[in-house]
């Protein structure tokens, strides 16, 4: 049996050996990617971080990610902090509040419908109770809805937002009148008492108040009160 002469050409890869090694290589890359993703748990990992940790070239990494997504081993989630960056995590994990933004976010953006609904329910409780602490409002909501998913802290956040909207006001209880159910000195919420005596904005009710060019306006300039378009709209163009 003669030994074959060594060929000058580059040895053609053995089809059998290629078949044998390819899955091993692919498995390694896939494992590296999966290990990176798994290491971050429910906080997810950015594509750039996977690349840095696994040291896999971009094109191969993209392929692996695609394969893993196709096999439902991983999923892509939106990070509300960095919407342009792609974040991946294992399919069995639920994304953390850090990424989703918490209860008030859905699909990476604010869920205004849910927020407005909770605001409405809070206001209803305040109207019924006249003046109530956050705890009283939360308990009242729980009584009317046994499946309430919101925590006391979350209801407190919504109440703070209602105060900023000036729909309810934060006051200290005196223990008398409307505050009879709230111990004196405790911080509570009540509906804003809108009275006819409250001042309306003087500057906001004239064109200059909302004029975007007020800083460029001078009596003798190109933009001046004498030729102001906003004044014409306000008082009627036929007079000027």
């Amino acid at each position: 049996m003669s030994t074959p002469e060594p060929s000058r050409k580059r040895a053609r890869p053995d089809p059998n050996s290629r078949l044998a090694t390819a899955p091993v290589q692919a498995l390694t890359e896939r494992d590296k990617v999966l290990a990176s993703i798994r290491s971050r748990g429910n906080r997810g990992i950015w594509l750039a971080d996977i690349k840095r940790e696994s040291e896999i070239p971009q094109n191969i990494l993209q392929k692996q990610i695609k394969m893993l997504l196709a096999t439902n081993l991983i999923k892509e989630v939106k990070d509300i902090r960095h919407k342009a960056k792609k974040v991946y995590m294992l399919s069995e994990f639920e994304p953390s509040e850090e990424i989703t933004g918490g209860t008030w976010f859905s699909g990476g953006s604010l869920n205004t419908e849910v927020i407005n609904d909770v605001k409405k329910r809070c206001k209803q409780q305040i109207t019924v109770l006249k003046a109530a602490t956050a705890d009283m409002i939360w308990k009242g909501m729980k009584r009317s809805d046994a499946n309430l998913i919101y925590t006391l802290q979350q209801i407190g956040d919504v109440l703070e937002a209602l105060v900023l909207d000036k729909e309810v006001e934060e006051v200290k209880s005196t223990g008398k009148g409307d505050f009879v159910n709230v111990p004196a000195g405790k911080v509570c919420y009540r509906t804003v008492q809108k009275s006819s005596g409250a001042r309306t904005g003087a500057l906001a009710s004239i064109p200059c108040g909302v004029c975007p060019r007020l800083r460029d306006c001078t009596p003798d300039g190109v933009i001046s009160p004498r030729n102001c378009e906003y004044y014409k709209k306000w008082l009627g163009a036929d007079l000027f």
């Binding site: 000036k166 409250a198 001042r199 309306t200 904005g201 500057l203 906001a204 009710s205 108040g209």
Partner: peptide
Amino acid sequence: NDEIEALVKAR
């Protein structure tokens, strides 16, 4: 605050 908040709201 009443004055300035009305202005900020309008603007």
